[in-house]
Amino acid sequence: MLDHSQVRARLRQRPPMLLLDTVREFTPPASLVATKAITGGEDCYRGVADGAGIDGFAYPAALLLESFGQAASLLWSLAELGPPEEVPLMVGLRDLAFATPARPGDLLEHHVRLRHHSGALAEFTGETRAAGRIVLTARSVLVVSRPAASLLPTTPEPVAIEG
């Protein structure tokens, strides 16, 4: 449905925080299945010591959630819930359960559905599956879209990016 170049065209996140690969299905008006493959080459495994057991390669919950949130952002974009120059920001979470973590080799499948939409606000629900198991259940992810320009610092400060 959307390959990775099309995913990039709709998301503003970039590596190391671009955590979505494809959209497999979009079912109008407002549900989708999006995927991310987890590999051993991810940034988060850079510091894992040699000899660590497989439990050391549990995919971090924070990144799993960010990936789910990016799937919700893509649904916001595909369902045209707001203008493209606005950025959907995750502002609220209710009742999330993280089950046995995913690992390198797993394919995350985010099943995301729109629950409510009003103006700049959208609420999503869904779950993430990997290797046939549910790894994340999210009852409510609240998103508010804001114009990108409004998110710039009022007094711009240069940010040193390590090169």
Binding site: V91, G92, R115, H116, S118, L121, E123, L142, V144
Partner: peptide
Amino acid sequence: SLNLIEIVAQLEK
């Protein structure tokens, strides 16, 4: 302001 947004979302649903 986020509380107000949350309240409205719940009411609308």
